[in-house]
Write a protein that binds this DNA or RNA. Structure first.
Ligand SMILES: [Mn+2]
Ligand SMILES: [Mn+2]
Ligand SMILES: [Zn+2]
Ligand SMILES: [Zn+2]
Lengths: 144, 144
DNA sequence: TATTAAACGCAACTGAATTGCGTTAAAATT
DNA sequence: AATTTTAACGCAATTCAGTTGCGTTTAATA
């Protein structure tokens, strides 16, 4: 099942201070090979119930705290996560890109070249983090 | 308890096709007099348990469908709503503003004067809806 | 190899949100 | 004004994402 090479796992887990348990390695791989964002339920189904849901939630929390993944807003208010860019750290998630949700195929796309406004404050509100979430029709679904 | 004049209630409820029950009139008033957004729990406490939570949820759903209120993001993934601008209709919620989540008080604020980019496409992606969600410290929490 | 500390897995729990259904009240019709 | 119709109400029961407790296993380390 491991398609991501072990070197990358070693480097990544060392960098983020994570234990290399078989489940967490597989979970990392799942994120790494997913173009779309993931909910706990989706993760569970990918593991075909071989992973306990509590382990999933705790791993997600741990990954998020380390700066490996970040929360993404979800239409149905579920917890949903996506792999971070390599610049992310526990104290600073660098979400310097917009996310696009296709209403047709339900895929999520990272629009890396969509530059975010770099505003740091607005009317006295101090902005630490800014997310842009788009909804619409993706390139491939448009032409169907 | 009614501070919003009855004329406004009449006009608004007619405009949005809503029944004038005493609870829903009070709920509308609550939204009208609130500077910040509201969750079901917060609404419940304002009514000091005189309104059933099911009625609250159903009223919120009904208000939202009519275009009177809109969902806003919440720090703890709760359902949270805010009064819409007068331009909103069932089929077209004009969410032309950004939302701000305070990490300290966990409130959500509508930044009505932070207008969203009106981009309709990007690299072939057709954008129907665009959301900006900011996180940071709100005005009041900043000065504590 | 032994120690220790984090991760796992199972069951039980929590709490926001939903559903069912009989009752009440607003609006429409007569 | 009285009747019919239909939406809203209220209570109980349910659902389900997410959490907590705790004993066991496994990875890191010494
Ligand atoms: Mn992303
Ligand atoms: Mn708003
Ligand atoms: Zn698509
Ligand atoms: Zn605040």
């Amino acid at each position: 099942m491991i398609m991501v090479n072990n070197k990358l796992i070693d480097v990544t887990f060392k960098k983020y201070g994570l234990r290399k348990t078989s489940f967490r390695k597989n979970l990392f791989e799942l994120f790494h090979n997913s173009s779309n964002t993931l909910s706990a339920k989706e993760i569970s189904s990918k593991f075909s119930s071989s992973a306990d849901k509590v382990s999933i939630y705790r791993a997600l929390e741990s990954f998020e705290k380390s700066g490996l993944i970040h929360k993404v807003p979800d239409k149905n208010n579920l917890l949903r996560y996506s792999l971070c860019k390599s610049e992310c750290r526990p104290n600073k998630h660098a979400h310097d890109h917009a996310h696009f949700l296709c209403s047709v195929c339900e895929e999520t796309f990272c629009l890396d070249d969509f530059t975010l406004p770099s505003t740091k404050s607005h009317n006295g509100f101090l902005i630490n983090d800014l997310k842009i979430i788009m909804e619409g029709t993706c390139v491939s679904c448009k032409s169907i």
